[in-house]
Design a protein around this nucleic acid. Sequence first.
DNA 1: GCTTTTGTTCGTATATTTGCGAACAATAAA
DNA 2: TTTATTGTTCGCAAATATACGAACAAAAGC
Lengths: 121, 121
Amino acid sequence: MEVKMTEKEYTYKQERLARYAKALGNPARIAIMEFLATQDECFFGQLHEKLPIAKATCSQHLSELKEAGLIKGEIDGLRTRYCIDQESWKECKLLFEEFIAKCPCNSNKQTDESNCKCSCK
Amino acid sequence: MEVKMTEKEYTYKQERLARYAKALGNPARIAIMEFLATQDECFFGQLHEKLPIAKATCSQHLSELKEAGLIKGEIDGLRTRYCIDQESWKECKLLFEEFIAKCPCNSNKQTDESNCKCSCK
DNA sequence: GCTTTTGTTCGTATATTTGCGAACAATAAA
DNA sequence: TTTATTGTTCGCAAATATACGAACAAAAGC
């Protein structure tokens, strides 16, 4: 008989958001996402041109983004075309927006911190 | 004489955003942030109670969030009070919002992908 | 003073990440 | 058919991340 020792676990959304955040947790991968977002078409070579890293490393970062679901790649002749994965990107954005909205400290009037529940000085 | 081999570098914002994303790239740290966002006061013990990890690990995650600037901690008698760091959190939100806005694929009408420049199928 | 409570730090183990050059496979071009 | 181009994979090294129990320090309570 198995007894569950604890109910403390992460929610699906927490796991998911953390996964996306992790995938974005490197400047090269941020740069890749930003570049992809501004391009009609994007081949590996163009991407690599923009980044201060070796081909192998670039390819690896692309793999990680792909594994996280944020981008897709397809081979086109000699080259590989990359693009943002719409479905996942939509989910990612949603999760981040929800997360951001959860924090009550949204005041952008800098002098008014009355919304903030935080009691630290 | 030093010669700069390449101008390809990451922008300050890319580095910054990646740093925040990395800090959020773990479900425990997401859970911590979410919990802090809903509490008036939050002591280590309460936080640890909610998480399926050992005290030492919890403390470590808190340190990482602190190092990334996302939270603050202050000792209060026997306990340690934690809270979200307003300034950094504000920057973090802004960077994420900017990043999200950069992607042209914002259509939430699912049938209309006309905004999307992506050419992958 | 001794004991308890609270949380951090230390030491350790294991896994993952980051990076590179070299080797490779697949396609296109000559 | 040989050669060049394009990008991935392999093998490796070094650094970071994740996790835990045990030891520890500081404050509070007895």
